[in-house]
Design a binder for these strands. Structure first.
Lengths: 232, 232
DNA sequence: ACGCAAAATTTCATCAACTGCAATAAGATG
DNA sequence: CATCTTATTGCAGTTGATGAAATTTTGCGT
């Protein structure tokens, strides 16, 4: 195996005779006592796979990395890889299905918190962005990789697509409480716009702080564009 | 050239002795005398492949259709298929790289036609949408399929990605003529938003007229959302 | 500790998307 | 017709992804 690993060992952070044991042990340290051992191992493997995927892709490029390499690096079989991720791309991005919390949802469908649709969308998106701050490092690496490998950008849209029906439900529910005329399609695209704009701004800021911090600026820009159109 | 194949058989693809001749002939009729025969055949094959792909997918679903089926239906080898399209999805969507015309570009980068960024974006998007009206039937079918097969939606984004660098160039050029502060990222997402909203509205309207006809409504909705936020 | 049931991993087989290459067929051209 | 160019094809091979059965690991009651 490993047909194209001529300069693989030039990297500083790894001189591993036995990647599985070392990484598993390290990863298990990170999550000391939380739930059963089974659960911890699961998280550890998942993290190991993401790390392996991101490291390899950063070094060799997306297409030059096979799931076999990733699996080998993480010390599992290739088949197991697909027990954790639906696709290679998902692993590289460390895809996490960050759902939205109940209270935020309830507030939104109730017509709150501000009563102004755009502002409330902003709050909603902020709550979507927050989980990203947890796995800070992995998200940062994912964003960097997204720039080098445009193909990964589409996963962003797939994420959107996964949650689109849920979002549409929210919009419909809110519409029942506080009628408004904007189409669902435009609103979902608006959510996507805000997410991407905020994330890119976050990246331009050197990944300092929380992605959600850049949301107000994104909204402000949007308002600006429209306002300029109304003025003149 | 709508009904390419008069065959609605649910049976496997071995019921036809010579699909190529019939379809090719029909397709060649459509484009009587234009450039060389070679060029016409190329277009005909491409059209045949798109039609075959869309028909089969509409009948059996995206994942149940293989490129071998599509190729067989169009009367070419599977290898040839990939001389025409980069992927199966591209064929199903009938991906056409509609570029933007020079005059529209020049007007935009010059700060026109209205001088208001959003309105000028609208004009730009309209010119992007117009080519879609040419291959009306295929675009309609592609849109229908997109609804049934969410995975195809991501191609929309890939299209966006392909043209993103060009769009960014336009934004930069205009910025040089008429300074404005909006980020490129937000603007490209805005373009995507307008395109999608207009297309979906067009679809909801039963595909009557031109997709670009629904652009003003999309912009109006966007303005509305922002305006409501400014008022209260 | 022991053994058993559930869950996860692995092995193996299989399919389909896609690519490179070399041979061949088919337009174009003079 | 001769030949040069371009397109098509068959073929072998890589890779992503999935299903099923065998095997290992973990949880847990006794």
């Amino acid at each position: 195996m490993v047909p194209t690993s001529s300069r693989a060992t030039a990297a500083p952070a790894d001189a591993e005779p036995r990647p599985d044991l070392a990484e598993l042990a390290a990863a298990l340290e990170g999550t000391p006592a939380e739930q059963g051992l089974r659960e911890r191992k699961k998280r550890a493997r998942r993290a190991a796979l993401i790390d392996a995927a991101q490291m390899l892709v950063a070094e060799h490029g997306l297409d030059a990395v096979t799931v076999e390499m990733i699996s080998a690096e993480a010390g599992v079989s290739a088949r197991t890889f697909f027990n954790y991720f639906e696709s290679k791309d998902d692993a590289v991005l460390g895809a996490e299905d960050s759902g939205l919390s109940e209270d935020v949802v309830l507030t939104f469908v109730g017509g709150g918190p501000t009563g102004r649709l755009l502002s409330d969308l902003e709050v909603l998106v902020a709550s979507l962005l927050r989980p990203h701050a947890e796995a800070h490092d992995r998200v940062v690496r994912a964003m960097d990789l997204m720039q080098q490998e445009p193909r990964l950008l589409q996963r962003h849209v797939i994420w959107m697509d996964r949650h689109k029906s849920r979002l549409v439900e929210l919009f419909e529910a809110r519409r029942a409480a506080v009628p408004f005329s904007t189409d669902n399609e435009l609103l979902t695209m608006l959510v996507l716009l805000l997410i991407r704009t905020a994330l890119v701004a976050w990246e331009h800021a050197g990944y300092s702080g929380d992605p959600a911090d850049h949301l107000p600026a994104a909204v402000a820009q949007l308002v600006d564009v429209v306002a300029h159109d109304l003025d003149s």
